[in-house]
């Protein structure tokens, strides 16, 4: 489903006359199958977020290829990448990244509006999700009126509503307390089991990483597969 082959990326840091090159991804290869949960664990600055950004198409690697469902993302232009993301990828962010001026309902509705889904169909899809994510009672609340857990559920709702086969989660529980963290992780496992959605989770938290079928560790741009016991 997701195949990375020899992906490398370098950041240029500093002024032009005193530029430094930092290898953030070093010949990374990775194969993720459908309906898998894969965790990528690493310290800050290890390159795990850069890896997620390349999978998402936010960043074009210096070399290597990224295939998602038989499409090579490195060959797509920005417009095609946007269309691809809209159809195939969902995103969960650490700090939720909800639109402050939109209500719970409207935030979840956003990808459907972008995709041009007709209002009646939108309403139907959102109502189902609101119930499933247990946030129907806060559908008219704005993000600043919601708890962290509720905000992350809205974020998950927004990622799920377009029915993408893959969800990329960047520190999905990073801003949550341990109890809410458990709730969100359970939800992710349920969605994976029931809907067959593939999850790629970036985290620095070993507890979070353990919900995955496979775990990878990232260290100075190197990706290695790890076992649950090794964490």
């Amino acid at each position: 489903m997701i195949t990375l082959q020899h992906v490398s990326h370098t950041f240029r840091i500093g002024k032009k006359d005193n530029e430094q090159l930092i290898d953030v991804l070093k010949d990374v290869s990775l194969q993720i199958d459908a309906a898998e949960i894969v965790s990528i664990v690493g310290k800050s600055g290890s390159g795990k977020s850069t890896l997620l950004n390349t999978i998402a198409g936010f960043l074009k690697p210096v070399s290597g290829s990224i295939h998602i469902q038989n499409t090579d993302l490195t060959t797509l232009n920005e417009r095609s990448l946007a269309a691809f993301r809209l159809q195939h990828l969902g995103f969960i962010f650490q700090n939720f990244q909800l639109m402050p001026s939109l209500t719970t309902y409207e935030n979840i509705e956003l990808p459907l509006k972008i995709a041009g889904v007709e209002p009646r169909k939108r309403q139907q899809l959102i109502q189902q999700l609101l119930k499933r994510l247990d946030i129907a009672h806060v559908k008219d609340h704005y993000p600043n009126e919601l708890s962290g857990g509720q905000q992350q559920r809205v974020s998950i709702g927004r990622a799920l509503v377009g029915n993408p086969p893959i969800i990329l989660a960047d520190e999905p529980t990073g801003s949550l307390d341990s109890e809410t963290e458990r709730e969100i992780l359970t939800l992710i496992q349920q969605l994976n089991a029931e809907l067959g959605i593939t999850f790629v989770i970036i985290t620095h938290d070993d507890e979070v990483a353990r919900i995955a079928n496979r775990i990878y560790t990232m260290h100075d741009g190197d990706l290695k597969e790890a076992t649950n016991d090794a964490l």
Binding site: A56, F58, E78, R79, A82, A83, F84, R85, L86, Q87, L89, F91, Q97, M99, L110, P111, I114, A115, R158, G162
Partner: peptide
């Protein structure tokens, strides 16, 4: 800027 970033991330066409 942040909202535009989110919109682009979730698949909004830059032309839109």
């Amino acid at each position: 800027t942040r909202e535009i970033g989110v919109m682009k991330a979730i698949g909004t066409n830059p032309k839109l």
